[in-house]
């Protein structure tokens, strides 16, 4: 082995050492970085307290749902002394109760499907093309998301009466499009703008027609965006009551409206009321789980 080669090896080794020491320093730095917010060891206290604050009223509702109304009114306890499933049994056996859930689910699903299907091509147009009046149109859509439902209550009732659609699921589903379609367009546009335009162009060069490209290539690329849009349509249709209650009387009455009726009529059956409330929380909790990784991005209308 020549001296020159020896020297070269040593040099190389030195470089490697240097690099690894630099890497070590960097990981150490990164480790301290990771604890940036944790100078006080009690950083977790704030989210924990907040979650406790969020859970207390829900806990109280669940607690009440396992008590009989007599127990609720007579004894004050942090947990059910004689746990009972009676309240849930009432709901699952009485058609006027459980049909409320079925009605809600039907119009919510219809609304979600209509909103997202209509919003997909529109969002693509907004994210890829400029056209006459596009900005005004986008702004007009936005104003509908911001419009107070109270303004629309009376005219909606008259409009849907004129079409003979009062008390049908489709009426509520279309009425909820008022705020869900703009929202879906917004979210989808945000996600679509994140997909580089070159993908479209390459697909066209490869001989894809537009519909085939859209369904086969584009939609899988924004699958998470579609999921988030569905979630938000589901959510806002599920939580809305004012319009849904106005447009329905019996056959399509949503569960939330069934609850308000029972409060006033049947002498306040607190136990059943609590059980019905708990059951309205469950669908929401289930769908959150599926979109938990995208939920924040969705609330930012796809624009983080």
């Amino acid at each position: 082995m020549s001296v020159a080669e020896d020297k070269l090896m040593a040099e190389r080794k030195g470089k490697i050492d240097e690099r690894s020491s630099m890497q070590n320093a960097q990981t150490a730095l990164a480790r301290t970085m990771r604890r940036r917010g944790e100078e006080s060891r009690f950083w977790w206290l704030i989210p924990t307290l907040y979650i406790i604050f969020l859970m207390l009223p829900i806990y109280w509702l669940i607690n009440m749902s396992f008590k009989t109304t007599a127990e609720i009114l007579s004894t004050f306890s942090l947990w059910p002394v004689k746990p009972t499933l009676h309240n849930y049994a009432v709901i699952f056996t009485d058609p006027s109760w459980y049909s409320g859930y079925i009605n809600s689910i039907i119009y919510v699903v219809m609304n979600t499907v209509i909103s997202v299907l209509a919003a997909l091509p529109a969002a693509y147009a907004f994210s890829r093309y400029r056209f006459l009046g596009d900005k005004h149109l986008f702004f007009w859509l936005l104003t509908n998301r911001m419009a107070p439902p109270a303004v629309f209550v009376l005219p909606f009732f008259q409009l849907y009466s004129a079409f003979g659609l009062i008390d049908t699921h489709i009426a509520v589903a279309i009425a909820h499009c008022l705020f869900n379609v703009p929202l879906a367009v917004w979210i989808l546009e945000g996600f679509m703008s994140g997909v580089p335009k070159e993908i479209d162009e390459t697909a066209y060069i490869d001989g894809y027609s537009f519909p085939r490209f859209f369904v086969k290539i584009f939609m899988p690329l924004i699958a998470s965006g579609i999921g988030v849009a569905c979630f938000f349509c589901f959510m806002f249709s599920w939580v809305e009551l004012l319009i849904a209650r106005t447009l329905t009387t019996t056959a399509a009455k949503p569960i939330a409206a069934t609850m308000t009726r029972t409060v006033s009529a049947s002498g306040l059956d607190w136990g059943v009321l609590a059980a019905a409330g708990v059951l309205t929380i469950i669908p929401g909790a289930l769908v959150i789980w599926f979109v938990r990784n995208y939920i924040a991005k969705g609330f930012a209308l796809g624009r983080v």
């Binding site: 907040y50 979650i51 829900i58 939580v239 939330a256 308000t260 409330g277 669908p283 929401g284 959150i288």
Partner: peptide, 12 residues
Amino acid sequence: LMSLPLLIPWNV
């Protein structure tokens, strides 16, 4: 857990 209140119907 934090998103839970957002998914509860408003009258509930």
